[in-house]
Design a protein around this nucleic acid. Structure first.
Lengths: 116, 116
DNA sequence: AACAATGGTTTCTTAAAGGAAACTAGTATA
DNA sequence: TATACTAGTTTCCTTTAAGAAACCATTGTT
């Protein structure tokens, strides 16, 4: 009888990975965090800084991010009423994630272009 | 007239971010890469190492990852026929991404538990 | 009165992701 | 002949993501 090999345990990495993905998964969340991080604080500026995003999607993602305490929504009176979105300090903790993904994306794109 | 503020440009970060997300986005891809990376090379071992994944989803994700040259599928004859999944060297380039997400996930979980 | 600007919402539609359960082909062993 | 094993596939269904287009309230300006 063949030796029964159990599967290697990777649960200690997979679990936190899943915890992170549950929060920042999706096409738009990190781009929005970056946009706000570089200083876009109004709805229309964020919208215009991210190619392809629609107001519906942006509104929904902003709510999600606010719930996760990554951004803050502030109402400023006046004309027209302004809403300011700003990064919470907690969002800074995502910097290593953003940086790693950005570097990988740059490398991936150059790899694809040289191969095809 | 109020000064018209243009939105800050974050396209240089958002674009590569999107390139990366297009490849590794989703609930399962990074967990699968990690599982294969630690040595699980058979379908059932990978399946058993990732809680909650179904064979249908695993089969589909493995195909995606193979297309992106992140893993390799090798058929080994014999009884029963074995298929071996192994990491391509390219998958190693995801290590910083995985590490950053894992650390963030660990921190996020402890933050949630201490706050609620 | 009409229009513009901001920060969204509403409706409708399609596509993709995810999941449960059952099933399959080929082969070896009892 | 019946059963087990590996590596999936098949069917059916629900949920979530995404997108296009139009619309809305408030208020100041012309």
């Amino acid at each position: 009888m063949a030796v029964k090999r159990g599967h290697s345990n990777c649960i200690d990495t997979v679990k936190p990975l899943r915890d992170a993905l549950d929060v920042i998964n999706g096409k738009w969340k990190l781009p929005i965090i970056v946009s706000i991080g570089v200083g876009n604080d109004r709805f229309s500026d964020i919208r215009d800084s991210i190619p392809g995003i629609t107001p519906k999607v942006l509104a929904k993602e902003l709510k999600d991010l606010e719930e996760h305490k990554l951004i803050k929504r502030t109402v400023v009176g006046g004309y027209p009423v302004q809403i300011l979105y700003t990064s919470e300090a907690y969002a800074d903790s995502l910097t290593p994630v953003v940086y790693a993904l950005k570097e990988w994306g740059l490398n991936h794109r150059s790899k694809i272009f040289s191969a095809e």
